[in-house]
C-alpha cells in the first residue's frame, strides 16, 4: 500500500481532525484525532494490518494546557508507520487504556503515568512505581518540573574539602 491509499482509507473511515494528515517522511504518516475517537481508530487500524504497537508517548504542551498522546503503529503488510495523536486536558489527564488491544501497552502507559501523571483507566499498574523509586514530587517529565530546585531540596549540597583529604593522607 502506498501512503496515498492509506490516506484515502483514513479519510473514508476515520474521524480525524481536518488537515492534520501528513506524510512527514517516506512511508510514515501522522494524524490527529479527538480523544473519544481514539480507541475506535486504533481498533480500525489494527484490523487493517497495523498489528504492531511500537510505542506510546506523551508530550507536555504546557502553554496550551494540553497533553499530547502519541501512539506509534506499524504495519508489516503495508510497510507503513502511523503516528496517531490526540490531545487531552492537562488538568484532568485521563485516558482509556488500550491494554486489551495491545497487551504491551501496559508498561508504556505505566511509564507515562509515572512521568506525566496521565491516568489510564483499566490499567492495573497505575499506582505502582516502575522506574522511579520512592518518588514523592511532581511527575518529572512535565515541563513545569524543575530538576535543579528538586535536587537542591532533596539532597544536601556537598562541597569537596580537599584540605581534609590531604590531612587524612598524612
Amino acid at each position: 500500500m502506498k501512503e496515498q491509499e492509506l490516506i484515502d482509507l483514513i479519510e473514508k473511515h476515520v474521524k480525524y481532525e481536518e488537515g492534520s494528515i501528513e506524510v512527514y517522511a517516506p512511508r510514515k504518516l501522522k494524524f490527529i484525532l479527538k480523544k473519544d475517537d481514539l480507541v475506535d481508530t486504533l481498533l480500525f487500524l489494527k484490523r487493517n494490518g497495523f498489528v504492531q504497537l511500537s510505542f506510546i508517548t506523551c508530550v507536555d504542551w504546557i502553554k496550551d494546557n494540553k497533553f499530547e498522546l502519541v501512539y506509534g503503529l506499524v504495519s508489516w503488510e503495508h510497510k507503513l508507520t502511523v503516528l496517531v495523536k490526540t490531545f487531552i486536558d492537562r488538568d484532568n489527564p485521563k485516558m482509556i487504556s488500550i491494554m486489551d488491544i495491545w497487551p504491551t501497552a501496559k508498561y508504556y502507559e505505566q511509564e507515562i503515568n509515572e512521568f506525566f501523571g496521565v491516568y489510564f483507566e483499566g490499567n492495573p499498574n497505575m499506582s505502582k512505581e516502575l522506574i522511579l523509586e520512592n518518588w514523592d514530587s511532581m511527575p518529572p517529565l512535565r515541563k513545569d518540573f524543575d530538576p535543579q530546585s528538586y535536587s537542591n531540596e532533596k539532597f544536601e549540597i556537598r562541597i569537596y574539602d580537599y584540605k581534609m583529604e590531604d590531612k587524612k593522607k598524612k
Binding site: Y24, A25, S54, F55, V59, G72, T81
Partner: peptide, 20 residues
C-alpha cells in the same frame, strides 16, 4: 517546528526516536 518518529533496525530490534 515539527515532530517525527524515526526508526532503525538495531541488533535487538526496532529502535526509534520520537522527537518534537
Amino acid at each position: 517546528k515539527g515532530d517525527a518518529y524515526v526508526k532503525l533496525e538495531s541488533a535487538r530490534g526496532e529502535f526509534g526516536y520520537y522527537m518534537v
